[in-house]
Amino acid sequence: MIDWTPFILTLKLALLTTIILFCIAIPLGYFLSKRKNIFTIFLETLFGLPLVLPPTVLGFYILITLGKNSLIGDFLSEHFDIQLVFSFSGLLIGSIIYSFPFMIQPLQAGFSTIPEDLIHAAMLMGKKEITILLKVVLPNMKSAILSGLVLTFAHTIGEFGVVLMIGGNIPDKTKVASIAIYDYVESMQYDNAHEYAFILLCFSFTILFLLYYFNRKNNFNLK
């Protein structure tokens, strides 16, 4: 009988990461697409780092930033009795940082495809910035939003390095599906590892297939 706990934990992590990142990346992506200066280029570089850095490097820095002997770790531990390392909350923070480019980049690309005249037209109608964003900008970049959501979700599911560094391998707490597979392989339980790996493979394939299908369908509809 398969233990579904790592999968439930994985889905919980992926879902929360996706929701939080979406809320952060919408205003940030809008800001970055509107302005181009040395500061925004610096931010873009910073946000793109998880794409090129080995997960272990990122995990290491998060570990020493949030760990017990760090400034933030000490502060949270003393004042709020919160320990981020080797906890689900720490795992969530690590996932948010690691998956950031997968959300921000499609959204930023989506924002920049919106013709300036559409925004200008809405401004001249007296519409506020938030109305323009919700009624004009976001509805006209559905493909970009879908890409951002699905890629972030799928990427979080497949996360390994950062998760292992920050969360460790604590059952029911931080042992997500990818860690569970590693665990089974380490202990030579290939049958269990195969079951988990196959489920993850099918799940990831289905998500990507649906993304490409809906994006293609959306593009045809626009034409």
Binding site: P115, D117, L118, H120, A121, L124, V136, P139, N140
Partner: peptide, 12 residues
């Protein structure tokens, strides 16, 4: 009221 050369109608 502005009539844009490329119309600027909202596609959604």
């Amino acid at each position: 009221g502005f009539v844009f050369q490329d119309y600027a109608l909202f596609p959604n």
